[in-house]
Design a protein around this nucleic acid. Sequence first.
DNA 1: AGTCCTCACCGG
DNA 2: AACTCCGGTGAGGACT
Length: 568
Amino acid sequence: MNDRWAVAATDAGGALLVPLGRDGRPAGDVREEPDLAQAIRSRPEVGRWVWRSTVEIYPRLLAAGVRVERCYDVEDAEALLLGHEGRHGEPHSAAAAWARLHDRAVPPDPPQRAAEPGSQSSLFEPQPVRVPFDDLLEVYADQCRRHAAAEHPHRMRLLTAAESAGMLVAAEMNGAGLPWRADVHRELLDELLGERYAGGGEPRRLAELTDKVSAAFGRRVRPELPADVIKAFGQAGIKIKSTRRWEIEGLGHPAVEPLITHKKLYRIYTAHGWGWLQDWVRDGRFRPQYLPGGTITGRWVTNGGGALQIPKVIRRAVIADPGWRLVVADADQMEPRVLAAISRDPGLMEVAGQPGDLYKAVSDRAFAGDRDMAKLAVLGAVYGQTSGDGLKNLAALRRRFPRAVAYVDDAARAGEEQRLVRTWLGRTCPPAAGSGDGEEAGIPQEAATQEPGRDPAAGGEFTPGYASTNARARGRFTRNFVVQGSAADWALLMMAALRQSLTTAGLRAELVFFQHDEVIVHCPADEADTVAGAIRAAGDLAGRVAFGETPVRFPFTTAIVECYADAK
DNA sequence: AGTCCTCACCGG
DNA sequence: AACTCCGGTGAGGACT
Protein backbone atom coordinates (compact mmCIF):
# COMPACT_ATOMS: atom_id res chain seq x y z
CA MET A 1 0.00 0.00 0.00
CA ASN A 2 2.85 2.38 0.71
CA ASP A 3 4.75 1.12 -2.27
CA ARG A 4 6.58 3.75 -4.21
CA TRP A 5 7.17 3.68 -7.90
CA ALA A 6 9.09 6.07 -10.07
CA VAL A 7 7.68 7.12 -13.42
CA ALA A 8 8.76 9.31 -16.32
CA ALA A 9 6.94 10.24 -19.50
CA THR A 10 8.55 9.30 -22.80
CA ASP A 11 8.45 11.45 -25.90
CA ALA A 12 6.04 9.02 -27.54
CA GLY A 13 3.42 9.41 -24.82
CA GLY A 14 4.49 6.26 -23.03
CA ALA A 15 6.06 5.70 -19.66
CA LEU A 16 9.19 4.37 -18.01
CA LEU A 17 8.44 2.80 -14.64
CA VAL A 18 10.22 1.06 -11.80
CA PRO A 19 9.30 -0.02 -8.26
CA LEU A 20 11.44 1.48 -5.49
CA GLY A 21 12.76 -0.13 -2.34
CA ARG A 22 12.82 1.30 1.17
CA ASP A 23 16.22 2.86 0.56
CA GLY A 24 14.85 4.74 -2.42
CA ARG A 25 16.78 2.61 -4.93
CA PRO A 26 15.12 0.64 -7.74
CA ALA A 27 13.74 -2.69 -6.52
CA GLY A 28 13.28 -4.23 -9.96
CA ASP A 29 13.89 -3.67 -13.64
CA VAL A 30 12.85 -0.55 -15.49
CA ARG A 31 9.94 -1.30 -17.80
CA GLU A 32 8.55 0.73 -20.67
CA GLU A 33 4.86 0.91 -21.53
CA PRO A 34 3.19 2.63 -24.49
CA ASP A 35 0.52 4.64 -22.63
CA LEU A 36 1.42 6.84 -19.67
CA ALA A 37 -2.13 7.29 -18.35
CA GLN A 38 -2.86 3.58 -18.66
CA ALA A 39 0.38 2.69 -16.90
CA ILE A 40 -0.70 4.75 -13.88
CA ARG A 41 -4.35 3.75 -14.00
CA SER A 42 -3.52 0.07 -14.00
CA ARG A 43 -1.51 0.31 -10.77
CA PRO A 44 -3.91 1.55 -8.10
CA GLU A 45 -1.87 -0.24 -5.45
CA VAL A 46 1.01 2.22 -5.82
CA GLY A 47 1.01 4.47 -2.75
CA ARG A 48 3.20 7.25 -4.05
CA TRP A 49 4.42 8.15 -7.53
CA VAL A 50 7.90 9.61 -7.70
CA TRP A 51 8.38 11.86 -10.70
CA ARG A 52 10.52 14.72 -11.90
CA SER A 53 7.88 17.41 -11.99
CA THR A 54 4.18 17.42 -11.18
CA VAL A 55 3.63 20.41 -13.41
CA GLU A 56 5.04 18.46 -16.35
CA ILE A 57 3.23 15.18 -15.92
CA TYR A 58 0.06 15.57 -13.87
CA PRO A 59 -2.06 17.79 -16.13
CA ARG A 60 -1.68 15.12 -18.83
CA LEU A 61 -2.92 12.47 -16.44
CA LEU A 62 -5.85 14.60 -15.34
CA ALA A 63 -6.77 15.23 -18.96
CA ALA A 64 -6.91 11.45 -19.40
CA GLY A 65 -9.13 11.17 -16.32
CA VAL A 66 -6.44 9.75 -14.02
CA ARG A 67 -5.93 11.05 -10.49
CA VAL A 68 -3.15 9.89 -8.20
CA GLU A 69 -3.36 9.64 -4.45
CA ARG A 70 0.15 10.81 -3.61
CA CYS A 71 3.26 11.88 -5.41
CA TYR A 72 6.82 12.98 -4.74
CA ASP A 73 8.04 15.86 -6.88
CA VAL A 74 11.80 15.47 -7.21
CA GLU A 75 12.53 19.00 -8.43
CA ASP A 76 10.36 20.63 -5.79
CA ALA A 77 12.02 18.51 -3.12
CA GLU A 78 15.41 19.48 -4.50
CA ALA A 79 14.63 23.15 -3.96
CA LEU A 80 13.46 22.52 -0.39
CA LEU A 81 16.47 20.35 0.41
CA LEU A 82 18.92 22.84 -1.07
CA GLY A 83 17.34 25.54 1.05
CA HIS A 84 17.55 23.40 4.15
CA GLU A 85 21.23 22.87 3.44
CA GLY A 86 21.77 26.62 3.11
CA ARG A 87 22.34 26.46 -0.65
CA HIS A 88 19.33 28.43 -1.86
CA GLY A 89 20.64 29.89 -5.06
CA GLU A 90 21.71 26.64 -6.70
CA PRO A 91 19.74 25.24 -9.64
CA HIS A 92 17.13 22.71 -8.56
CA SER A 93 16.43 20.79 -11.75
CA ALA A 94 16.96 17.04 -11.52
CA ALA A 95 19.66 17.41 -14.15
CA ALA A 96 21.46 19.94 -11.98
CA ALA A 97 21.12 17.71 -8.93
CA TRP A 98 22.63 14.81 -10.88
CA ALA A 99 25.48 16.98 -12.11
CA ARG A 100 26.30 18.03 -8.54
CA LEU A 101 26.42 14.37 -7.51
CA HIS A 102 29.01 13.72 -10.22
CA ASP A 103 31.00 16.93 -10.05
CA ARG A 104 29.93 17.86 -13.55
CA ALA A 105 29.06 21.31 -14.83
CA VAL A 106 25.68 22.25 -13.35
CA PRO A 107 23.13 23.48 -15.91
CA PRO A 108 21.31 26.65 -14.87
CA ASP A 109 17.56 26.58 -14.27
CA PRO A 110 15.55 27.94 -17.19
CA PRO A 111 14.08 31.42 -16.74
CA GLN A 112 10.49 31.78 -15.61
CA ARG A 113 7.98 32.87 -18.19
CA ALA A 114 4.71 34.67 -17.77
CA ALA A 115 1.62 32.52 -17.70
CA GLU A 116 -0.63 32.33 -20.71
CA PRO A 117 -4.13 33.42 -19.73
CA GLY A 118 -6.83 30.81 -19.83
CA SER A 119 -4.68 27.75 -20.33
CA GLN A 120 -6.70 24.88 -19.04
CA SER A 121 -5.05 21.52 -18.78
CA SER A 122 -1.46 22.56 -19.38
CA LEU A 123 -0.05 24.25 -16.34
CA PHE A 124 2.65 26.78 -16.80
CA GLU A 125 6.09 25.26 -16.73
CA PRO A 126 9.51 26.54 -17.72
CA GLN A 127 11.18 24.55 -20.47
CA PRO A 128 12.34 21.43 -18.63
CA VAL A 129 15.99 20.55 -18.33
CA ARG A 130 15.86 17.00 -19.65
CA VAL A 131 17.25 14.20 -17.53
CA PRO A 132 17.63 10.46 -18.23
CA PHE A 133 15.41 8.19 -16.10
CA ASP A 134 18.40 6.47 -14.49
CA ASP A 135 19.79 9.84 -13.44
CA LEU A 136 16.43 10.80 -11.93
CA LEU A 137 16.45 7.58 -9.89
CA GLU A 138 19.92 8.35 -8.65
CA VAL A 139 18.88 11.85 -7.59
CA TYR A 140 15.87 10.47 -5.75
CA ALA A 141 17.95 7.96 -3.80
CA ASP A 142 20.33 10.74 -2.84
CA GLN A 143 17.43 12.93 -1.70
CA CYS A 144 16.31 10.12 0.62
CA ARG A 145 19.73 10.25 2.25
CA ARG A 146 19.56 14.02 2.51
CA HIS A 147 16.20 13.89 4.28
CA ALA A 148 17.81 11.61 6.85
CA ALA A 149 20.56 14.17 7.36
CA ALA A 150 18.14 17.05 7.93
CA GLU A 151 17.79 18.72 11.32
CA HIS A 152 14.45 16.94 11.85
CA PRO A 153 14.26 14.13 9.26
CA HIS A 154 10.63 13.28 9.95
CA ARG A 155 9.53 16.89 9.57
CA MET A 156 11.58 17.33 6.40
CA ARG A 157 9.93 14.26 4.85
CA LEU A 158 6.60 15.72 5.86
CA LEU A 159 7.48 19.03 4.22
CA THR A 160 8.44 17.59 0.84
CA ALA A 161 5.45 15.24 0.91
CA ALA A 162 3.12 18.09 1.82
CA GLU A 163 4.37 20.37 -0.91
CA SER A 164 4.11 17.55 -3.44
CA ALA A 165 0.49 17.14 -2.34
CA GLY A 166 0.11 20.87 -2.88
CA MET A 167 1.34 20.41 -6.44
CA LEU A 168 -1.43 17.85 -7.03
CA VAL A 169 -4.02 20.17 -5.51
CA ALA A 170 -2.81 23.07 -7.65
CA ALA A 171 -3.11 21.05 -10.85
CA GLU A 172 -6.55 19.77 -9.90
CA MET A 173 -7.79 23.27 -9.00
CA ASN A 174 -6.58 24.54 -12.34
CA GLY A 175 -8.53 21.73 -13.98
CA ALA A 176 -11.71 22.40 -12.01
CA GLY A 177 -11.61 26.20 -12.11
CA LEU A 178 -13.43 28.67 -9.86
CA PRO A 179 -17.08 29.10 -10.96
CA TRP A 180 -17.27 32.58 -12.44
CA ARG A 181 -20.31 34.28 -13.95
CA ALA A 182 -19.03 36.61 -16.67
CA ASP A 183 -22.51 38.11 -17.10
CA VAL A 184 -22.69 39.06 -13.41
CA HIS A 185 -19.17 40.45 -13.58
CA ARG A 186 -20.11 42.65 -16.57
CA GLU A 187 -23.22 43.94 -14.81
CA LEU A 188 -21.04 44.76 -11.84
CA LEU A 189 -18.56 46.67 -14.00
CA ASP A 190 -21.34 48.65 -15.69
CA GLU A 191 -22.78 49.48 -12.29
CA LEU A 192 -19.46 50.50 -10.71
CA LEU A 193 -17.61 52.05 -13.62
CA GLY A 194 -20.36 53.05 -16.03
CA GLU A 195 -20.57 52.16 -19.68
CA ARG A 196 -17.60 52.24 -21.96
CA TYR A 197 -17.67 54.70 -24.81
CA ALA A 198 -17.66 53.19 -28.27
CA GLY A 199 -14.33 54.72 -29.21
CA GLY A 200 -12.55 53.14 -26.24
CA GLY A 201 -10.92 55.08 -23.43
CA GLU A 202 -12.10 55.29 -19.86
CA PRO A 203 -15.63 54.23 -18.91
CA ARG A 204 -18.12 56.96 -18.11
CA ARG A 205 -17.82 57.16 -14.32
CA LEU A 206 -14.02 57.29 -14.40
CA ALA A 207 -14.16 60.10 -16.96
CA GLU A 208 -16.64 61.98 -14.76
CA LEU A 209 -14.41 61.59 -11.72
CA THR A 210 -11.43 62.85 -13.69
CA ASP A 211 -13.49 65.93 -14.62
CA LYS A 212 -14.47 66.50 -10.98
CA VAL A 213 -10.87 66.28 -9.82
CA SER A 214 -9.80 68.70 -12.54
CA ALA A 215 -12.60 71.11 -11.66
CA ALA A 216 -11.58 71.04 -7.99
CA PHE A 217 -8.01 71.98 -8.90
CA GLY A 218 -8.99 74.45 -11.58
CA ARG A 219 -6.81 72.76 -14.15
CA ARG A 220 -6.55 69.50 -16.06
CA VAL A 221 -5.32 66.73 -13.74
CA ARG A 222 -4.99 63.02 -14.43
CA PRO A 223 -5.80 61.28 -11.13
CA GLU A 224 -3.96 58.09 -12.08
CA LEU A 225 -0.61 59.91 -12.29
CA PRO A 226 0.83 60.46 -8.79
CA ALA A 227 3.28 63.09 -10.03
CA ASP A 228 0.43 65.09 -11.56
CA VAL A 229 -1.63 64.92 -8.35
CA ILE A 230 1.29 65.93 -6.13
CA LYS A 231 1.98 68.90 -8.38
CA ALA A 232 -1.67 69.95 -8.35
CA PHE A 233 -1.83 69.85 -4.55
CA GLY A 234 1.43 71.78 -4.42
CA GLN A 235 -0.05 74.54 -6.57
CA ALA A 236 -3.02 74.58 -4.19
CA GLY A 237 -0.58 75.18 -1.33
CA ILE A 238 -0.71 71.65 0.10
CA LYS A 239 2.54 69.71 0.33
CA ILE A 240 2.24 65.91 0.26
CA LYS A 241 4.90 63.24 -0.02
CA SER A 242 2.79 60.70 -1.85
CA THR A 243 -0.76 60.25 -3.07
CA ARG A 244 -1.52 57.23 -0.91
CA ARG A 245 -5.08 57.24 0.29
CA TRP A 246 -4.29 57.51 4.00
CA GLU A 247 -2.13 60.57 3.31
CA ILE A 248 -4.73 62.29 1.20
CA GLU A 249 -7.72 61.57 3.42
CA GLY A 250 -8.50 64.50 5.64
CA LEU A 251 -6.68 67.15 3.64
CA GLY A 252 -9.91 69.11 3.46
CA HIS A 253 -9.67 69.84 -0.25
CA PRO A 254 -12.61 69.38 -2.64
CA ALA A 255 -10.49 67.14 -4.90
CA VAL A 256 -10.02 64.53 -2.18
CA GLU A 257 -13.35 62.75 -2.40
CA PRO A 258 -13.48 62.23 -6.19
CA LEU A 259 -9.77 61.37 -6.11
CA ILE A 260 -10.26 58.55 -3.63
CA THR A 261 -13.29 57.23 -5.46
CA HIS A 262 -11.27 57.29 -8.64
CA LYS A 263 -8.45 55.30 -7.04
CA LYS A 264 -10.80 52.55 -5.98
CA LEU A 265 -12.57 52.30 -9.31
CA TYR A 266 -9.45 52.69 -11.42
CA ARG A 267 -7.94 49.75 -9.62
CA ILE A 268 -10.93 47.59 -10.53
CA TYR A 269 -10.86 48.90 -14.09
CA THR A 270 -7.22 48.01 -14.68
CA ALA A 271 -6.86 44.86 -12.56
CA HIS A 272 -10.27 43.18 -12.73
CA GLY A 273 -12.12 44.93 -15.54
CA TRP A 274 -13.27 43.90 -19.00
CA GLY A 275 -9.76 43.03 -20.13
CA TRP A 276 -9.21 40.68 -17.21
CA LEU A 277 -12.54 39.00 -17.87
CA GLN A 278 -11.63 38.50 -21.51
CA ASP A 279 -8.25 37.03 -20.62
CA TRP A 280 -9.05 34.83 -17.65
CA VAL A 281 -12.64 33.60 -17.68
CA ARG A 282 -13.66 30.86 -20.12
CA ASP A 283 -16.77 28.69 -20.06
CA GLY A 284 -17.84 29.92 -16.66
CA ARG A 285 -14.57 29.17 -14.91
CA PHE A 286 -11.59 31.22 -13.74
CA ARG A 287 -8.46 29.09 -13.96
CA PRO A 288 -5.50 30.67 -12.20
CA GLN A 289 -2.19 28.86 -12.20
CA TYR A 290 -1.15 28.30 -8.63
CA LEU A 291 2.50 27.92 -7.70
CA PRO A 292 2.75 26.17 -4.34
CA GLY A 293 5.74 27.38 -2.38
CA GLY A 294 6.13 30.34 -4.73
CA THR A 295 7.28 32.62 -1.93
CA ILE A 296 10.14 32.38 0.53
CA THR A 297 7.75 31.65 3.38
CA GLY A 298 6.02 28.88 1.46
CA ARG A 299 2.84 30.75 0.74
CA TRP A 300 1.45 30.11 -2.70
CA VAL A 301 1.42 32.62 -5.49
CA THR A 302 -0.50 32.57 -8.73
CA ASN A 303 1.06 33.16 -12.05
CA GLY A 304 -1.25 35.58 -13.79
CA GLY A 305 -4.85 36.46 -13.12
CA GLY A 306 -4.28 37.83 -9.64
CA ALA A 307 -6.31 35.08 -8.02
CA LEU A 308 -5.03 35.90 -4.55
CA GLN A 309 -6.12 39.55 -4.75
CA ILE A 310 -9.72 39.31 -5.92
CA PRO A 311 -11.35 42.51 -4.61
CA LYS A 312 -14.27 41.96 -2.28
CA VAL A 313 -16.81 43.64 -4.60
CA ILE A 314 -15.84 41.41 -7.50
CA ARG A 315 -16.60 38.28 -5.46
CA ARG A 316 -20.25 38.76 -6.39
CA ALA A 317 -19.35 37.14 -9.71
CA VAL A 318 -18.26 33.91 -8.03
CA ILE A 319 -21.47 31.88 -8.04
CA ALA A 320 -22.02 28.15 -7.67
CA ASP A 321 -23.54 26.11 -10.49
CA PRO A 322 -27.32 25.54 -10.27
CA GLY A 323 -28.06 23.12 -7.44
CA TRP A 324 -24.52 23.43 -6.14
CA ARG A 325 -23.00 25.41 -3.28
CA LEU A 326 -19.74 27.02 -2.32
CA VAL A 327 -18.38 25.98 1.05
CA VAL A 328 -16.19 28.91 2.05
CA ALA A 329 -13.95 28.21 5.04
CA ASP A 330 -11.62 30.66 6.69
CA ALA A 331 -9.15 29.51 9.38
CA ASP A 332 -9.71 31.54 12.55
CA GLN A 333 -6.64 33.50 13.68
CA MET A 334 -4.29 31.06 12.01
CA GLU A 335 -1.06 32.86 12.84
CA PRO A 336 -1.37 33.18 16.64
CA ARG A 337 -2.55 29.57 16.83
CA VAL A 338 0.50 28.49 14.86
CA LEU A 339 2.71 30.58 17.15
CA ALA A 340 1.20 28.77 20.14
CA ALA A 341 1.93 25.39 18.59
CA ILE A 342 5.52 26.07 17.53
CA SER A 343 6.55 27.92 20.69
CA ARG A 344 4.75 25.52 23.06
CA ASP A 345 3.92 28.51 25.23
CA PRO A 346 1.61 27.05 27.92
CA GLY A 347 -0.60 30.10 28.25
CA LEU A 348 -1.01 30.69 24.53
CA MET A 349 -1.63 26.98 23.89
CA GLU A 350 -4.39 27.06 26.47
CA VAL A 351 -5.95 30.09 24.82
CA ALA A 352 -5.61 28.49 21.38
CA GLY A 353 -7.12 25.25 22.63
CA GLN A 354 -10.51 26.76 23.28
CA PRO A 355 -13.17 27.52 20.75
CA GLY A 356 -14.20 31.11 20.35
CA ASP A 357 -12.40 34.36 19.82
CA LEU A 358 -8.68 33.97 20.47
CA TYR A 359 -7.97 37.70 20.68
CA LYS A 360 -10.73 38.10 23.26
CA ALA A 361 -9.17 35.34 25.36
CA VAL A 362 -5.73 36.95 25.10
CA SER A 363 -7.19 40.31 26.09
CA ASP A 364 -8.86 38.79 29.16
CA ARG A 365 -5.52 37.45 30.32
CA ALA A 366 -3.17 40.28 29.48
CA PHE A 367 -5.04 43.43 28.42
CA ALA A 368 -7.91 43.91 30.84
CA GLY A 369 -10.40 42.83 28.23
CA ASP A 370 -9.31 45.26 25.50
CA ARG A 371 -9.59 43.03 22.44
CA ASP A 372 -8.25 45.55 19.92
CA MET A 373 -5.16 46.12 22.03
CA ALA A 374 -4.62 42.36 22.35
CA LYS A 375 -4.90 41.89 18.61
CA LEU A 376 -2.46 44.71 17.92
CA ALA A 377 -0.01 43.27 20.42
CA VAL A 378 -0.13 39.78 18.91
CA LEU A 379 0.20 41.03 15.36
CA GLY A 380 2.92 43.43 16.46
CA ALA A 381 4.88 40.56 17.96
CA VAL A 382 4.55 38.61 14.73
CA TYR A 383 5.32 41.55 12.44
CA GLY A 384 8.01 43.19 14.53
CA GLN A 385 6.22 46.41 15.33
CA THR A 386 8.53 48.95 16.90
CA SER A 387 6.44 52.02 17.59
CA GLY A 388 5.60 53.27 21.07
CA ASP A 389 2.26 51.62 21.78
CA GLY A 390 3.44 48.45 20.16
CA LEU A 391 6.37 48.17 22.56
CA LYS A 392 4.18 48.75 25.59
CA ASN A 393 1.70 46.12 24.45
CA LEU A 394 4.52 43.74 23.66
CA ALA A 395 5.74 43.98 27.25
CA ALA A 396 2.31 42.98 28.53
CA LEU A 397 2.25 40.10 26.08
CA ARG A 398 5.70 38.95 27.17
CA ARG A 399 4.70 38.81 30.85
CA ARG A 400 1.79 36.44 30.14
CA PHE A 401 3.14 34.53 27.14
CA PRO A 402 6.93 34.55 27.60
CA ARG A 403 7.78 31.52 25.48
CA ALA A 404 5.73 32.72 22.54
CA VAL A 405 7.39 36.13 22.48
CA ALA A 406 10.81 34.58 23.07
CA TYR A 407 10.26 32.32 20.06
CA VAL A 408 9.79 35.19 17.62
CA ASP A 409 12.49 37.26 19.34
CA ASP A 410 14.93 34.39 18.82
CA ALA A 411 13.95 34.19 15.16
CA ALA A 412 14.55 37.93 14.81
CA ARG A 413 17.96 37.72 16.46
CA ALA A 414 18.96 34.76 14.30
CA GLY A 415 18.02 36.77 11.23
CA GLU A 416 19.99 39.81 12.34
CA GLU A 417 23.00 37.57 12.88
CA GLN A 418 22.65 36.03 9.40
CA ARG A 419 21.93 32.57 10.76
CA LEU A 420 19.57 30.14 9.01
CA VAL A 421 15.98 30.35 10.17
CA ARG A 422 13.50 27.54 9.57
CA THR A 423 9.77 26.94 9.70
CA TRP A 424 8.52 24.15 11.93
CA LEU A 425 8.74 21.60 9.11
CA GLY A 426 12.10 22.86 7.90
CA ARG A 427 11.51 25.30 5.06
CA THR A 428 14.52 27.55 5.34
CA CYS A 429 14.86 31.28 4.90
CA PRO A 430 17.79 32.24 2.67
CA PRO A 431 20.51 33.82 4.83
CA ALA A 432 20.60 37.09 2.91
CA ALA A 433 17.31 37.53 1.15
CA GLY A 434 15.62 39.84 3.63
CA SER A 435 12.33 41.19 2.44
CA GLY A 436 12.30 39.06 -0.65
CA ASP A 437 14.32 41.39 -2.81
CA GLY A 438 17.97 40.47 -2.59
CA GLU A 439 19.15 43.82 -3.91
CA GLU A 440 17.23 46.11 -1.67
CA ALA A 441 17.38 43.98 1.42
CA GLY A 442 21.13 43.90 0.95
CA ILE A 443 23.54 42.26 3.29
CA PRO A 444 26.40 44.18 4.90
CA GLN A 445 28.94 42.87 2.40
CA GLU A 446 26.86 44.28 -0.41
CA ALA A 447 26.50 47.54 1.42
CA ALA A 448 30.26 47.81 1.64
CA THR A 449 30.52 47.78 -2.13
CA GLN A 450 27.99 50.55 -2.51
CA GLU A 451 29.15 54.01 -3.31
CA PRO A 452 28.38 56.49 -0.56
CA GLY A 453 25.49 58.66 -1.59
CA ARG A 454 24.13 56.13 -4.04
CA ASP A 455 22.66 53.74 -1.58
CA PRO A 456 19.15 52.86 -2.74
CA ALA A 457 18.01 51.74 0.71
CA ALA A 458 19.04 55.01 2.28
CA GLY A 459 17.18 57.31 -0.03
CA GLY A 460 20.34 58.54 -1.72
CA GLU A 461 22.11 59.57 1.46
CA PHE A 462 25.16 57.99 2.94
CA THR A 463 24.17 56.40 6.22
CA PRO A 464 26.73 54.74 8.47
CA GLY A 465 23.87 52.82 10.08
CA TYR A 466 22.87 51.19 6.80
CA ALA A 467 24.01 47.71 7.75
CA SER A 468 22.26 47.74 11.09
CA THR A 469 19.12 49.18 9.55
CA ASN A 470 19.21 46.29 7.15
CA ALA A 471 19.90 43.82 9.92
CA ARG A 472 16.82 45.07 11.73
CA ALA A 473 14.74 44.80 8.59
CA ARG A 474 15.97 41.27 8.21
CA GLY A 475 15.13 40.57 11.83
CA ARG A 476 11.56 41.70 11.22
CA PHE A 477 11.45 39.45 8.22
CA THR A 478 12.69 36.31 9.98
CA ARG A 479 10.46 37.05 12.99
CA ASN A 480 7.49 36.95 10.68
CA PHE A 481 8.93 34.13 8.60
CA VAL A 482 8.80 31.48 11.33
CA VAL A 483 5.11 32.18 11.97
CA GLN A 484 3.85 32.85 8.46
CA GLY A 485 5.98 30.00 7.08
CA SER A 486 4.88 27.50 9.71
CA ALA A 487 1.31 28.57 9.02
CA ALA A 488 1.95 27.77 5.36
CA ASP A 489 3.27 24.36 6.46
CA TRP A 490 0.02 23.75 8.32
CA ALA A 491 -2.08 24.97 5.40
CA LEU A 492 -0.37 22.53 3.02
CA LEU A 493 -1.11 19.61 5.30
CA MET A 494 -4.67 20.82 5.76
CA MET A 495 -5.20 20.93 1.99
CA ALA A 496 -3.67 17.49 1.59
CA ALA A 497 -5.94 16.06 4.29
CA LEU A 498 -9.00 17.72 2.83
CA ARG A 499 -8.24 16.48 -0.67
CA GLN A 500 -7.78 12.98 0.66
CA SER A 501 -11.03 12.95 2.61
CA LEU A 502 -13.10 14.39 -0.24
CA THR A 503 -11.80 11.60 -2.46
CA THR A 504 -12.29 8.73 -0.05
CA ALA A 505 -15.79 9.93 0.84
CA GLY A 506 -16.67 9.55 -2.82
CA LEU A 507 -18.09 13.06 -3.08
CA ARG A 508 -18.52 15.08 -6.25
CA ALA A 509 -17.13 18.05 -4.32
CA GLU A 510 -14.11 19.83 -5.77
CA LEU A 511 -11.55 22.11 -4.18
CA VAL A 512 -11.66 25.25 -6.31
CA PHE A 513 -9.85 27.99 -4.40
CA PHE A 514 -7.10 28.45 -1.85
CA GLN A 515 -5.80 31.68 -0.41
CA HIS A 516 -3.35 31.40 2.51
CA ASP A 517 -5.91 30.58 5.23
CA GLU A 518 -9.08 30.13 3.22
CA VAL A 519 -10.47 27.37 1.00
CA ILE A 520 -13.51 27.12 -1.22
CA VAL A 521 -15.08 23.78 -2.12
CA HIS A 522 -17.71 23.62 -4.88
CA CYS A 523 -20.19 20.81 -4.29
CA PRO A 524 -23.79 19.65 -4.78
CA ALA A 525 -26.03 21.24 -2.17
CA ASP A 526 -26.63 17.98 -0.31
CA GLU A 527 -22.90 17.44 0.18
CA ALA A 528 -22.25 20.84 1.74
CA ASP A 529 -22.61 19.85 5.39
CA THR A 530 -20.37 16.83 4.89
CA VAL A 531 -17.79 19.02 3.19
CA ALA A 532 -17.87 21.56 6.03
CA GLY A 533 -17.21 18.73 8.47
CA ALA A 534 -14.37 17.44 6.34
CA ILE A 535 -12.75 20.87 6.37
CA ARG A 536 -12.95 21.10 10.17
CA ALA A 537 -11.47 17.63 10.51
CA ALA A 538 -8.68 18.44 8.04
CA GLY A 539 -7.70 21.52 10.04
CA ASP A 540 -7.31 19.65 13.30
CA LEU A 541 -5.65 16.65 11.66
CA ALA A 542 -3.13 18.98 10.01
CA GLY A 543 -2.43 20.54 13.40
CA ARG A 544 -1.62 17.17 14.94
CA VAL A 545 0.42 15.92 11.98
CA ALA A 546 2.43 19.11 11.67
CA PHE A 547 3.03 20.05 15.28
CA GLY A 548 2.46 16.83 17.22
CA GLU A 549 0.01 16.50 20.09
CA THR A 550 -0.72 19.95 21.49
CA PRO A 551 -3.89 21.44 22.96
CA VAL A 552 -4.02 23.89 20.03
CA ARG A 553 -7.11 23.73 17.84
CA PHE A 554 -7.47 25.06 14.30
CA PRO A 555 -11.13 25.99 13.84
CA PHE A 556 -12.70 27.51 10.74
CA THR A 557 -15.45 29.98 10.11
CA THR A 558 -17.49 28.22 7.47
CA ALA A 559 -20.25 29.53 5.25
CA ILE A 560 -22.38 27.53 2.81
CA VAL A 561 -23.42 29.95 0.11
CA GLU A 562 -24.33 30.25 -3.53
CA CYS A 563 -22.31 33.45 -3.96
CA TYR A 564 -18.80 34.04 -2.59
CA ALA A 565 -19.69 37.62 -1.67
CA ASP A 566 -22.27 36.33 0.82
CA ALA A 567 -19.68 34.40 2.81
CA LYS A 568 -18.62 37.16 5.17
C1' DA B 1 10.57 47.96 -29.52
C1' DG B 2 11.62 45.68 -25.43
C1' DT B 3 13.06 45.88 -20.33
C1' DC B 4 13.12 47.63 -15.89
C1' DC B 5 11.53 50.62 -12.25
C1' DT B 6 8.11 53.25 -9.35
C1' DC B 7 3.67 53.95 -7.74
C1' DA B 8 -0.55 52.66 -5.56
C1' DC B 9 -3.93 49.50 -5.06
C1' DC B 10 -5.73 44.60 -3.97
C1' DG B 11 -5.57 40.36 -0.91
C1' DG B 12 -3.79 37.52 3.35
C1' DA C 1 -2.54 56.06 15.08
C1' DA C 2 0.21 54.49 11.58
C1' DC C 3 0.96 52.34 7.66
C1' DT C 4 4.99 47.62 10.59
C1' DC C 5 5.09 41.27 7.58
C1' DC C 6 4.10 38.57 2.70
C1' DG C 7 2.95 38.92 -2.24
C1' DG C 8 0.59 40.25 -7.53
C1' DT C 9 -1.12 43.63 -10.75
C1' DG C 10 -1.24 47.35 -14.33
C1' DA C 11 0.01 51.93 -16.09
C1' DG C 12 3.28 55.15 -17.03
C1' DG C 13 7.73 56.50 -17.83
C1' DA C 14 12.77 56.11 -18.08
C1' DC C 15 15.97 53.48 -19.93
C1' DT C 16 18.67 50.56 -23.44
